[in-house]
Amino acid sequence: MSTMKLLFRLTLLSIFFVMTSCVKDLDLDQAQEIVIPPSVALDLIYFTIDSSDFFSAGASGPLVARDEVRLEFLDDDYIRDGLMRADYNFIFENSFTQTFNAKFTFLSENNLVKYRVNFVIPAGSSASPATIDYTEIINVDEIKAIRESIKMFVEIEMVPNGEAFEGELQLKSKAFYKFEFK
């Protein structure tokens, strides 16, 4: 057998060897189904305020403390689109003897209201501050509102009860974001 003939046969054998090796019982299309599902726990805002932080809303309106903060955690299309659920947890400790209406309003860049979280902060006292641990769960059917929000407007409205307006109101808050990145 000539050298060339043998080499030719060996080359054929090599090709056969590689061709008969195979990749089987595999479905690479499953790559389309891959979902990255992180759950992220983040601090949000916090404050401690006293009566000096409250101002009258209008000539005869109630005393309120207001502020606005941009929350740009979600300022990215990929992140926003992957957001499936948001849990906002607000923990207030109130040593005022008044109750308060807590209002957290989620706004778009153009200040359109996208979502509201409202609840009542119970009255406490300096000796025994009241605590409320409130969680708002925003599921997938409502999450579009959060995806479209970039700012949070915070309003704390005092409910008068005729007693002296003295004490402190403390907030701690966190967010759980559940994502599904595809």
């Binding site: 916090y46 404050f47 932080d53 502020d67 606005e68 903060v69 941009r70 740009e72």
Partner: peptide
């Protein structure tokens, strides 16, 4: 380290801090 964003409730006529920009 961060504890999140502390908001300060500026009074009427006071400039509101750029909380997010300051944090960043």
């Amino acid at each position: 380290y961060t504890d999140g964003i502390e908001i300060l409730f500026p009074g009427p006529g006071e400039e509101r801090p750029s909380y997010w920009d300051d944090w960043e």
